[in-house]
Design a protein around this nucleic acid. Structure first.
Length: 422
DNA sequence: TCTGGGGTCCTAGGACCC
DNA sequence: TCTGGGGTCCTAGGACCC
């Protein structure tokens, strides 16, 4: 008995979350926007049918959306994160081994389930998730993760499959691969797709049969793994424990361009606060902090400037105040007056477990005290709300803040935003 | 007017070493 | 016409994912 994987993927996840709490949206198109209300990042089937593509700027399609009475939402990550957790809880009951692959997808190991009717099992998964969480999902089953992905794509598209497709029986694999456009294969992005189309490889079946040397040379070892996986040879195992993070990033576009060092410092202070919080949640400390700022890359006729400053810390830390101090010093080195900045962010790198921090001889910081302070801050913010207690450096007005004009309620994580029933 | 954010892995090339 | 060979480490950039 070889490997069998199921890929369970939530349909139009963010749009489905909005719908789960607002019955008035049934049958109506739903679109969800990126941060800053900039681009379309999730679409219900009605919106996809209008030909509105993933990632297009809102302003290009705003009239079209209005014409078709599409409900448009700012992204509401508190809601989506919580709904994701609920879906994953249900999925976890269907296999002892699960890999949470993204906010809306998980692989299940069905390797020991050979005696079962896998198609029926997949339908059971789909039915229970939608009944218990309100989120519709599709299930694809295959001998490798890449084949499970292929199955999942077809399960979503095909009316006959009705949301579940089992390709673990090799009899159906070729037909499925032939119906899968090259760009839909997991691991083939627009760059490789263009390359492949030049040599007349247009679907997954043709990709499966491309010469190994060609693939190795043009697509590297990752490309070769994809091809092997299409042949049914598993190259990727389930990753049940998330690998330790190598870097943590926090960045945002501003609601409106800013010029002053003061505002820029507030924004950077805010992003550092956010990144440091993530560090502590994972019990890590950072040895290096980088700060970057840039003007609007879409404005051809404005002064353009983009720069990044990386600073090594004497002792790895996850203390917000200390990181803000080094980060703002870095910012001052790259700040340029007269530029209209549109985006900024921070990276924390060289992450080590907080218990394994290398001290050094001349360190004058009281690290025990720092640690107790951070624990207190995190506890208070956990009980009240993130940001209830914050560093003066992040400001109060925050005029640079991301636009989020159409956010729905945080139905599941805030007492004051519970759904109401009449 | 209005254009997301957060990650991973791989590769090529340069610096440096013996 | 000529230029050693082999190794490591680091970095920047490019591909991909959601």
């Amino acid at each position: 008995m070889g490997s069998v994987y199921a890929l369970v993927d939530c349909n139009n996840f963010y749009a489905s979350c909005e719908r789960a709490f607002d019955p008035g949206l049934a049958g109506r198109g739903v679109a969800v926007l990126s941060n800053n209300d900039g681009c379309i990042v999730a679409r219900s089937n009605e919106v996809k049918a209008l030909g509105i593509k993933m990632g297009v700027p809102l302003f290009q399609v705003a009239r079209e959306l209005e014409k078709h009475r599409v409900a448009v939402f700012s992204s509401n990550y508190a809601l989506y994160g919580d709904m994701s957790r609920r879906v994953m809880d249900v999925l976890g009951s269907f296999s002892p081994e699960m890999e949470i692959y993204s906010i809306d997808e998980a692989f299940l190991d069905l390797g020991g389930f050979g005696h079962l009717d896998l198609d029926a099992y997949g339908r059971d998964i789909r039915d229970k998730v939608v009944r218990w969480t309100g989120i519709p999902v599709s299930v694809g089953i295959g001998r490798t993760k890449t084949l499970a992905k292929v199955a999942n794509h077809l399960a979503k598209k095909s009316v006959k499959a009705d949301g579940v497709l089992d390709l673990s029986d090799s009899a159906w694999v070729e037909a499925a691969l032939e119906r899968t456009p090259i760009g839909d294969v997991w691991g083939v992005g627009p760059g490789f797709a263009r390359h492949l189309e030049k040599i007349n490889v247009r679907n997954a079946l043709q990709l499966r049969d491309v010469d190994d040397d060609w693939v190795r040379k043009r697509m590297g070892v990752t490309g070769l793994r994809t091809v092997y996986e299409l042949r049914g040879e598993a190259c990727y195992d389930l990753e049940t424990a998330p690998p330790p993070r190598k870097g943590i990033c926090s960045s945002r576009s501003f609601g409106q361009p800013i010029e002053s060092l003061e505002s820029l410092s507030e924004a950077i202070g805010q992003y550092i606060t956010c990144a440091a919080r993530k560090l502590r949640k994972q019990k890590l400390a950072a040895g290096v902090i980088s700060v970057f700022i840039r003007t609007n890359i879409f404005k051809k006729n404005e002064l353009r400037y983009s720069n990044c400053q990386t600073t090594g810390l004497p002792v790895a830390t996850n203390d917000t105040g200390e990181l803000i101090r080094y980060g703002l010093a870095g910012l001052r080195k790259i700040y340029r007056p007269g530029c209209r900045f549109k985006k900024a962010g921070v990276f924390l790198e060289q992450l080590v477990p907080e218990t394994h921090v290398q001290g050094h001889l001349f360190d004058e910081v009281d690290r025990e005290k720092q640690k107790r302070l951070m624990q207190a801050v995190d506890r208070i913010n956990g009980e009240m709300a993130e940001g209830a207690l914050r560093y003066g450096a992040v400001g109060l007005q925050q005029p640079w803040k991301t636009k989020s004009l159409r956010r729905s309620r945080r139905y599941t994580t805030r007492w004051d935003e519970l759904p109401e029933v009449r």
